[in-house]
């Protein structure tokens, strides 16, 4: 018995250290964002909101945040219907090449972001498309759609089709059945797919870094480029904290309505 509890204590301590490792960079950024000294060095000194003020006064960062939000919203708005239609076709019909098609639709998940980035850069240059919001949106739709296809397919697989038959036998036509029965039933999948699509677009660096210009830069690329050329700038603690709080709110929403374990 003594040996067993010793193992338990050791395992518990090890767990604690790993959870600390997992959460440390997030916790430290949040704590350091309220730091009052001019440089970000430890030990931290007093408490202040100076980095939040610096963030709100920084036109470039705010513009990057706005661009990221617009691109992510447009990406989600396009990826959702595209993924939904494709998932429906794959779930409901038997046709040659069906398995190959669903594998192909998920394939952007497997291709390195930098490979897609340089490929799409060369493509845009070849067709003469100037770098713009739409350039980012189109590229992001490609990497966001697989998530929608996957989550909607999973929802459709769990969906009991006799419910549709029941609705039809009660006199609802095809469209009305889909709208009143099928869509509400797969809403968790759509919600999860939408949130994944949004976050995929909003966070992307490896692909976007190839498409960004000094004037058109999404926020994560802006942070990446500044860290890469100027090192640690304390203003990013405030930017990061705002983003972390926003994302955690999304995650809690996802957990409440979908359940993270089901993803």
């Amino acid at each position: 018995m003594g040996r067993r509890s010793l193992i338990g204590v050791l395992l518990g301590a090890f767990n604690l250290l790993v959870y600390l490792f997992l959460l440390a960079p997030i916790a430290v950024v949040i704590i350091a964002s309220f730091n009052s000294s001019a440089r970000l060095s430890f030990p931290l000194e007093g408490v202040s909101l100076q980095w939040y003020r610096a963030f709100l006064a920084n036109r470039e960062l705010l513009e990057a945040l706005r661009l990221s939000a617009v691109v992510a919203l447009a990406t989600t708005a396009l990826a959702l219907p595209l993924g939904l239609l494709a998932a429906f076709a794959i779930d409901r019909y038997r046709f040659p090449g069906r398995d190959a098609l669903s594998a192909f639709l998920l394939s952007p998940l497997l291709i390195p972001g930098v490979v897609l980035g340089i490929g799409i850069l060369i493509f845009y240059a070849s067709v003469g498309l100037p770098i713009s919001v739409w350039g980012f949106v189109l590229a992001h739709v490609l990497i966001a759609s697989p998530y929608v296809v996957r989550t909607v397919l999973a929802s459709l697989a769990r969906f009991d089709r006799s419910l549709e038959e029941a609705a039809m036998s009660l006199g609802a036509d095809d469209l009305r059945t889909k709208r009143a029965v099928t869509l509400p039933a797969i809403r968790p999948g759509l919600l999860a797919g939408g949130i994944f699509a949004f976050m995929t677009s909003f966070d992307n660096v490896p692909l976007s870094v190839f498409l960004a210009t000094p004037t058109v830069t999404p926020l994560p690329v802006k942070i990446y480029a500044d860290l890469d050329s100027h090192g640690i700038d304390p203003v990013f603690t405030a930017v990061s904290t705002v983003l972390i709080v926003g994302t955690l709110a999304l995650v809690l929403l996802l957990d409440r309505y979908v359940g993270l374990e089901r993803l």
């Binding site: 997030i26 909003f202 966070d203 660096v205």
Partner: peptide, 27 residues
């Protein structure tokens, strides 16, 4: 479960920034 997943939902660039703050010269 949520604690294991939480980092997953925080942008990669932010997490890396966090490590730079923790592990840097004045970290």
């Amino acid at each position: 479960y949520l604690l294991v997943l939480a980092p997953f939902f925080v942008s990669v660039v932010i997490r890396t920034y966090g490590w730079m703050v923790i592990l840097g010269h004045n970290g």
